[in-house]
Computed example of a mutant assay.
Amino acid sequence: MTEYGYFLSCEEFTPAQLLDQARLAAEAGFTRLAVSDHFHPWNDAQGSSPFVWSVIGALSQTVDLPVTTLVTCPTVRLHPAVTAQAAATSAVLLGGRFTLGVGTGEALNEHVHGDRWPSFDERAEMLEEALEVMRKLFTGEQVSHRGRHYTVDNARLYTVPAEAPPVYVSGFGPNAAALAGRIGDGFVTMTPDRDLVGAFRADGGAGKPVIGGVKVCWNDDRDKAVDLVHRLWPTELLPGELAQLLPTPAHFEQASELVTPEMVAEAVTCGNDVDEHVATLRSYVDAGFDEVYVGQIGPDNEAFFDHYRREVLPALPR
Score class of each variant (00 low, 15 high):
residue 97 R to H: 10
residue 207 G to Y: 11
residue 280 T to V: 14
residue 234 P to D: 09
residue 94 L to P: 01
residue 2 T to K: 06
residue 214 V to N: 08
residue 207 G to A: 14
residue 109 N to Q: 06
residue 70 L to Y: 11
residue 175 N to S: 11
residue 226 V to W: 03
residue 7 F to W: 13
residue 216 V to Y: 14
residue 188 V to W: 03
residue 318 R to Q: 10
residue 41 P to G: 01
residue 83 T to C: 15
residue 113 H to A: 08
residue 112 V to Y: 00
residue 311 E to F: 03
residue 172 F to W: 10
residue 174 P to M: 11
residue 205 G to Y: 13
residue 70 L to N: 09
residue 80 P to W: 07
residue 53 W to Q: 06
residue 300 D to T: 13
residue 9 S to G: 00
residue 233 W to S: 14
residue 313 L to N: 02
residue 16 A to T: 14
residue 130 A to D: 10
residue 225 A to G: 15
residue 52 V to D: 06
residue 170 S to C: 13
residue 220 D to Y: 02
residue 225 A to N: 04
residue 99 T to M: 03
residue 215 K to G: 11
residue 301 N to G: 13
residue 87 A to T: 09
residue 156 R to A: 14
residue 306 D to S: 14
residue 212 G to P: 04
residue 252 F to W: 04
residue 265 A to F: 04
residue 190 M to D: 01
residue 276 E to H: 12
residue 20 D to F: 07
residue 47 G to P: 04
residue 271 G to K: 02
residue 158 Y to H: 09
residue 162 A to R: 13
residue 159 T to D: 09
residue 169 V to G: 07
residue 67 V to P: 05
residue 63 V to W: 11
residue 104 T to S: 13
residue 252 F to N: 03
residue 31 T to F: 03
residue 169 V to F: 04
residue 262 E to Q: 15
residue 290 D to W: 00
residue 232 L to S: 05
residue 298 G to S: 08
residue 216 V to A: 13
residue 223 D to S: 14
residue 10 C to R: 06
residue 131 L to C: 14
residue 270 C to L: 07
residue 77 R to P: 01
residue 225 A to V: 08
residue 63 V to A: 05
residue 19 L to M: 10
